[in-house]
């Protein structure tokens, strides 16, 4: 087994934590793992992408164009930006939310309409309104646990391992709400 996973989104959405949970889970299941992260200026509200690769032996820490098995996107436009990284038969999981880049706010560019429909013409796309679920649980910050739960069945890892890693990584006070968020995401169609 080998998996190339990309987690994309907007700086500040928690993509880094999600990649660490997936990577740690893969290690627990006995795989070689590499994760590549984004730090520094690029994190400041910009487009961010992290990579998680696991399998018997992993060389480069990044996933290149045409090589991703799964893209988990925390925002619609970012799913569109990186969709071409998918390999044939790969899937995209999209959190259905819109964050306008400054190029759109200033009017220099327009935010594309119908992104999910466009993506569906070429790719297998699974979308979820993660904010709505997070809000219904009373904390918008558990968004990444919802999205992780929703993505869980596509990662080639035991769902129980992912849940346990999540429990071990989030702050102790927030374990319950994060696990609930994970479950809600996992149960969503």
């Amino acid at each position: 087994m080998s998996k190339n996973v990309m987690i994309v989104g907007v700086g500040g959405q928690g993509t880094l934590l999600t990649s660490r949970i997936i990577g740690k889970s893969a290690l627990k299941e006995g795989y070689d793992v590499k994760i590549s992260e984004v730090h520094g200026m690029a994190q400041r509200g910009g487009s961010v992408v992290t990579f998680v690769r696991y399998g018997d032996k992993v060389s480069e820490p990044v996933v290149e164009e045409g090589c991703a098995d799964v893209i988990i996107s925390f925002e619609r436009l970012e799913a569109m930006r990186y969709a071409h990284y998918l390999k044939q038969g790969g899937i995209i999981v999209v959190n259905d939310c819109r964050i306008d880049p400054m190029t759109v706010v200033t009017g220099a560019k327009t935010y594309p309409e119908g992104i999910i429909e466009t993506l569906k013409q070429t790719y297998s796309v699974y979308s979820i309104d993660g904010q709505e679920i997070a809000k219904s649980l009373g904390n918008s910050k558990v968004l990444n646990s919802v999205v992780l739960g929703y993505s869980a069945r596509h990662l080639g890892l035991n769902v129980e391992t992912l849940k346990q890693t999540l429990e071990s990584i989030v702050p102790p006070k927030t374990v319950e709400i994060n696990v609930n968020a994970f479950k809600k995401g996992y149960e969503s169609k």
């Binding site: 400041r44 487009s47 436009l77 930006r81 071409h84 990284y85 880049p101 190029t103 560019k109």
Partner: peptide, 12 residues
């Protein structure tokens, strides 16, 4: 690889 889709930039 698949064709890259046109998207507005998202600078930091």
């Amino acid at each position: 690889v698949y064709a890259k889709l046109e998207t507005p930039n998202r600078p930091p």
